[in-house]
């Protein structure tokens, strides 16, 4: 089975990141924006993993530093989701909306 090269991984993760970013910028529903943020985190994790696999060195083993970092990202992301969703729920209770068009208190 042909394995994908580093470039393809990076391209793929770049695509995921772009999709996430455009989602954050374009979508109006705050929950969707939150999901897109998670997508961007996943893209970043994928980049790290891809680099650890590619960066083998003399021993022909992967550089596990990057993979360790990915575990941390996943744990922190889990905690962040809990906090983020809680904020969104609190926001919805206060404002009765999840659309960013209605959340412009920072204007001027």
């Amino acid at each position: 089975m042909p394995t994908a090269s580093l470039t393809e991984y990076l391209f793929f993760s770049g695509l995921l990141f772009a999709i996430g970013l455009s989602g954050v910028i374009i979508r109006r529903n705050i929950i969707v924006i939150f999901m897109c943020l998670e997508l961007m985190l996943a893209a970043a994790s994928l980049t790290l993993v891809a680099f650890t696999r590619a960066n083998t060195g003399d021993t022909n083993l992967p550089d596990y530093d990057g993979q360790m970092l990915v575990f941390f990202i996943i744990t922190v992301a889990a905690a962040e989701v809990a906090v983020g969703l809680a904020i969104i729920v609190a926001l919805y209770r206060a404002r009765k909306t999840t659309s960013t068009d209605d959340l412009t208190a920072l204007k001027n």
Binding site: L21, V24, R28, I33, D101, L103, T104, L106, K107
Partner: peptide, 18 residues
């Protein structure tokens, strides 16, 4: 800047920082 950049729209800011 206040008139044209500070819209209060979250995505606007995200776009600008991006």
């Amino acid at each position: 800047f206040r008139k044209y950049a500070q819209s209060g729209n979250l995505q606007h800011y995200a776009f600008l920082s991006g």
